[in-house]
């Protein structure tokens, strides 16, 4: 049985559809799992059919769950300067973190929203296909050593790249989490943790269970694991879900290919919903 054939079986026997994930990357990850668990394809299929807990674990291992605070600091600085600086008069801000993993980017964003005084007018939905990482995100507890380094790097880069006074330079990051060196733990404070709605959601298969339109959608380094036709479908859905003038934030080396290019205008690291063409699809 090939990996492709297995994925069709998985789709049949579970709620998960990885059949349009990027061939080689899913193959690599699945073969690695087989090796680590000392399974062959037949055994894998048998466990997939009979053991739902195994399937959940498999999904956790197939999906890539790396995330960090303020990955690509320049993107976050640009987000502040070209978006947060300009929406003071907006009454409500709707934000979707799609594929939010264990939540570090969600909290990166929440810290900025609070610093700008926008927290009370922000609705934040954070979704991921993987229940394990959703639970981690809700918990908001991270390893102090690695995560604090990323936050400190962001502070350094703010000071380096912004001349003169700016709100970003005044942020007291320590206000948002507690630190325990002995337990190597950084814990997000409750007042931030309670703000976002973390829900398990499969971008590929499910409609988001809320009808709202978003001002900004973060979906960073998620689409790289999909094949191009699935990418296009998801990008169209994002386009549909954005308010006019809304922004999509992708990973810094993800490409937007094909006709989707005409639906978004690239501005720096951001893709703005293109209002020139109101095409139906």
């Amino acid at each position: 049985m090939t990996v492709k054939e297995y994925l069709l079986e998985l789709k049949k026997y579970s709620q998960y559809d990885f059949s349009e994930y990027s061939d080689n990357s899913i193959q690599r990850r699945l073969l690695k799992i087989l090796e680590e668990h000392e399974l062959d394809m037949n055994k894998l299929l048998e466990m997939t059919k009979n053991n739902p807990a195994f399937v959940e674990n498999l999904v956790n291992e197939i999906t890539v769950n790396t995330t960090e605070f303020y990955r690509d600091t320049d993107v976050w600085i640009e987000y502040a300067l070209s978006f947060l600086d300009k929406i003071k008069i907006k009454k409500v801000i709707n934000i979707w973190h799609a594929g939010s993993s264990s939540g570090q980017e969600v909290y990166s964003n929440l810290i900025l929203l609070d610093a700008y005084g926008y927290l009370n007018k922000s609705n934040i939905i954070a979704t991921d296909i993987n229940q394990v990482v959703i639970d981690e995100a809700k918990k908001g507890e991270y390893r102090l050593s690695t995560n604090l380094r990323n936050i400190e790097q962001f502070q350094k880069d703010i000071d380096k790249s912004i001349n003169g006074d700016h709100l970003l330079k005044t942020i007291d990051f320590k206000k948002y989490f507690s630190e325990s060196v002995t337990n190597d733990r950084l814990e997000i404070k409750q007042f931030l943790k309670k703000v976002p709605l973390f829900i398990k959601h499969d971008l590929v298969k499910e409609k988001l269970p809320y009808e709202v339109k978003f001002d900004i959608i973060f979906c960073r380094n998620v689409l790289i694991y999909f094949n191009t036709s699935l990418q296009s479908r998801i990008l169209k859905m994002f386009h549909d879900r954005l308010n006019n003038g809304g922004m999509l934030v992708l990973g810094s080396h993800e490409g937007v290919s094909g006709f989707v290019k005409t639906r978004f205008v690239k501005r720096g690291n951001f893709f703005a919903k293109n209002n020139i063409f109101h095409l139906k699809y």
Binding site: D23, N24, S25, V64, N221, I224, G251
Partner: peptide, 12 residues
């Protein structure tokens, strides 16, 4: 990749 493209990944 086999189609002579580059794939990027953020895995561990």
């Amino acid at each position: 990749e086999f189609d002579n493209t580059i794939a990027l990944s953020t895995e561990a």
